[in-house]
Design a protein around this nucleic acid. Structure first.
Lengths: 210, 210
DNA sequence: AGGAAGTGGACAGCGTCACTATCGGATAAC
DNA sequence: GTTATCCGATAGTGACGCTGTCCACTTCCT
């Protein structure tokens, strides 16, 4: 275990915690109940967990849910790709006010226009509606034009995501790739958006030359 | 205060907490030190705070930082737009390993190729590097092709963002619009990406007809 | 053979965060 | 004049993500 800690930079106490929480499989018991063997697979899994938690911002519970899904061979790739955001988001208390109804209509209109074929009421739809309704609550409909632009960008991105994932040969690493791509890709995208905003902003409001 | 609570649906105790934390300006003291007057402005501010915290997922400290910036007339719009992610992210401990160096090169290459002109070492650059380096650590360079695609999408999105913000006339609501657009837009984009992923995935791996 | 050092596991404790419950004195409403 | 409400301060709560301590056992070194 100390070796595992050294290899990954994760404190031993934290490794124990992850073992307790079921985020990391137990090592092979060798000769005695206080000596376990950890291998390459453990290093990879632990790295994955740390990445999801630290960079991806997932909670321990969300990570457990996601890992449970990717370890279950009965869950197909298609579902696994989605599980991430689904697991990370709260169960969505299903609010019911006029703003949400209007936002739902808008989202559904976008989905219909783009021809997206989806399962009935996926969690991400709920999340999109929440975000849109909240935008409306705060700013009126000043941000109304954004959603279609985002949807087009999202489709382009999703195609790149799927291209990348299907290009992975090994079925085991494929699921992992999908997971990391979804979770960390969100962070990367957000950061790039911010950089692009800064660029466009500087372009339109040129700073006074020093 | 009870009225403010009724108007926004936020518990009185929480309003008191926000007052304490400086997220909400005190009401006008009227006749006595135990009677305060809250107005329309308080309702809007409180709604904004709740939106950022609940839907946007910002911490109280991040909200305080952002609000402090938008209330300060010395901070120009250009900076305000960016403050959000900057304030929400941790101060970034500036790691220094080969993976980060390689990721930094890639990000800088993308920035250069797209012709983005940025301030030196903005926080979002750090965040992008972190995400990319972590992707690499976990999956090797299987996800290498994604970043340029994301960057192009990010630019398109940022242009829509800026279009929307500059279209807002009133300078006061403009900053608020920028803020909400940045924070909630990120959520909306993530949710739409997930929906698009589901669609593209279903398209490429058609589910067995029932 | 003997002692120091290391190992894995159980369990309790800690620090942070976002609230929430209680109290007390003062005022407003009737 | 009594009752109800209000505001502010302070302490407390529950969830989360670890972290510290202890213990029986084993391994290594001499």
């Amino acid at each position: 275990m100390a070796e595992l800690s050294r290899a990954t930079g994760v404190p031993v106490a934290t490794i124990k915690y992850y073992l307790r929480e079921g985020l990391l499989p137990r090592g092979e018991v060798t000769t005695s109940p206080n000596q376990a063997q950890y291998g390459e697979e453990h290093v990879r899994r632990l790295t994955l967990v740390r990445s999801l938690v630290e960079v991806g911002g997932l909670s321990i519970a969300a990570v457990r849910a996601v890992l449970g899904a990717i370890d279950d061979p009965a869950v197909p790739l298609h579902d696994t790709l989605g599980l991430t955001i689904d697991a990370a988001d709260a169960p969505a208390p299903a609010v019911d006010d006029p703003l949400h109804a209007a936002a739902a209509e808008r989202i559904d209109a976008i989905v219909a226009e783009r021809g997206w074929r989806l399962s009935p009421d996926p969690p991400a739809r709920r999340a999109a509606i929440d975000a849109l309704a909240t935008m409306h609550r705060v700013t009126g409909d000043r941000l109304a034009g954004l959603a279609p632009v985002y949807a087009e960008a999202a489709e382009r991105i999703a195609e790149a995501d799927l291209d990348t994932v299907t290009a992975v040969e090994a079925p085991e690493t494929r699921v992992e790739t999908a997971l990391v791509g979804t979770v960390l890709g969100e962070r990367l995208l957000a950061a790039l958006r911010r950089l692009a905003q800064e660029h466009v902003s500087a372009q339109r409001f040129p700073p006074p030359p020093t």
